[in-house]
Write a protein that binds this DNA or RNA. Structure first.
Lengths: 346, 346
DNA sequence: TTGAAAGCGCTAACAC
DNA sequence: GTGTTAGCGCTTTCAA
């Protein structure tokens, strides 16, 4: 069992004494054991085991300047960010990949502008090696706050704030929203649909505008009346659908900006006695299992690998951290592919 | 602007030089400034400002043995723990209170038994001052793993594992499940109901068994047929209700172990043409806004202050940490009161 | 290959 | 009040 003086953790020194070697040797063994002869390695390992030695993190950080920790900054301007399944999947991916890199996840929960200073102080304090943040609304101050701290940061979602291409450019991971949207719309076209509407998300989120752009890429001459706007909620999708039906009762297909709005649209379509996909074909975006799989009919939708995006954010950050020393070029952003999943709604 | 040698953060030393004082004085000022004459304080403050000095956390931790960080251990044996609204509220409370105590939240996400070793290593490494964990199933290994690390820990929910009263006793925060249940059942009795059923949660979770105990406290001679078991999901509530109706079609009230099961029960009651509350009065537990407020009719239920429980967990932990030095008695657990919220279902 | 020794940046006695 | 000094526990040259 561990320790003779409970409360006092054994130090390197103690292990060295027990193993009859120097602190330096113990340190080498603890850090992989390269360049130490086998018998000594064994001896040290045994001492570590017997004493229940665990390296002191602060001491190590002090000299290596590595924290083994990454901040995940969650800004919550909206509401239930945390319980958002999208978010959960992304954080899960982040958590898993961080674990694989022996790093810890420090959660920085920002509830309002007043929290920015706290976050800035924390980042500047060198508690973490880097940060992961999410691109929310374009007028958010967070990016510039983070930028000032000089802490390497990777964003989730393509940033759309002013200067995102210039001095405030940051590496990010995003799905190919525009390409995915194009594929969805092309598919509806291939089905023979001709009056294809789009229910777009908020104008200040790139995930929404990119999808709208993809829609327009394919339907260059689309009637502006065929585009409605929602805010990614089920309710807004229903409202948008109702408006669409009023303006263009002849609509024969709808590409919704996400699954939630698609499910709202579906509800309205059925209320009006329109059959899906017979009368109106419907395609969503996200492939959120809790939505797309449970509607009636199940949604045809564009899948993005959300957990994978979380993992990629971590990998990108780690690459940034490791190349900091060898003055290499900035590690570009990455766009992950999407995939059209055909179910019954189109 | 901060710094002449970008990349190299200014140290205490640099501030001292600039202000023309010793490191000790700077340290005093940075830590509150007690016992330093005003003019010097001002001079130091100015130097700190000019240099953009931020204390190095690792160096500070190394000597104070305080991390300013607390681990939140989320075990996920079930499934969507993270997106559970109950959980979100509790973590929100924790996050807020931690911020108030100038502490950070380090998220330890346990996905399976294989992760225990990692968690143990992390805790033993002295990365955090304490930990917060949640009491899940009684056969979980987590408590003993945590116990071995000797890291002060507060649990959310009354632990029910073997030894929870003995060597594995831990401070915890929980709602008064038993008292809340009693109040709910007494209320149904006061309404004149005589055949009051209970849909209980899992037998290996104390929140469920405590509520069942509360039910039995009031209905000492209740027919065992009036008790059904579910697993806290909507679906299981529906199943339990169906079974109940089959055994005792004369049931005139149901106290469900949580709102989700109540909503499942409500669905079945309506399908069978039974009116709520006229034919069967229904009471839930939790007062989960997304459930209790949206059913038709809205649920009468027992409210617990979930966010408050999260905050209390932190306060309890902080008290433990601060009393570590003055050998005071262990800081007991705390039970928070519940409140019956009357809506339309009973 | 191994050991000795010099710090990493800070706090906390202890002197002055 | 303020400064001097001795570490906190570890990694990392540099010598041997």
């Amino acid at each position: 069992m561990p320790d003779s003086t409970p409360g006092a953790r054994p130090t390197l020194e103690a292990v060295a004494a027990r193993a009859g070697v120097s602190r330096a040797t113990v340190s080498r063994v603890v850090n992989g054991g390269a360049g130490v002869r086998q018998p000594l390695v064994d001896k040290v390992r045994r001492a570590v085991e017997e004493l229940g030695y665990v390296p002191n993190h602060a001491a190590r950080t002090l000299v290596t300047r590595r924290n083994g920790a990454v901040a995940v900054i969650i800004a919550e301007p909206e509401f239930r960010v945390f319980s958002d399944p999208f978010f959960e999947q992304q954080v899960r991916g982040i958590s898993r990949e961080l674990t694989a890199h022996d790093s810890q996840l420090v959660l920085l929960w920002v509830e309002g502008p007043g929290d920015y200073e706290r976050v800035a102080r924390y980042l500047a304090g060198g508690h973490v090696d880097g940060a992961l943040a999410f691109s929310v609304h374009n007028d958010d101050e967070l990016p510039s706050v983070i930028h000032r701290t000089q802490v390497p940061t990777v964003f989730g979602g393509r940033p759309g704030w002013p200067g995102a291409h210039g001095e405030l450019a940051v590496p990010y991971v995003d799905a190919d929203n525009r390409g995915g949207a194009r594929e969805a719309v092309r598919y509806l076209v291939s089905l023979g649909r001709r009056r294809i509407a789009h229910i777009a998300g908020p104008r200040d989120q790139t995930s929404a505008t990119d999808r709208l752009d993809g829609y327009r890429d394919v339907l260059l001459d689309a009637d502006p009346e065929l585009v409605a706007h929602g805010d990614f909620t089920e309710e807004s999708g229903a409202r948008a659908m109702a408006g669409l039906l009023e303006r263009r009762p002849d609509v024969d297909a709808v590409f919704a900006g996400n699954d939630l709005m698609a499910s709202g649209a579906l509800r309205v379509l059925r209320e009006r006695g329109l059959r899906v996909p017979r009368d109106v074909a419907l395609v969503g975006f996200d492939d959120m299992a809790s939505v797309a799989g449970t509607t009636d009919p199940p949604l045809t939708t564009v899948r993005q690998d959300i957990e994978g995006m979380g993992r990629l954010m971590v990998r990108l950050l780690m690459r940034t951290l490791n190349q900091d020393e060898p003055g290499a070029g900035a590690p570009g952003s990455v766009i992950t592919p999407t995939e059209l999943v055909r179910r019954a709604s189109a």
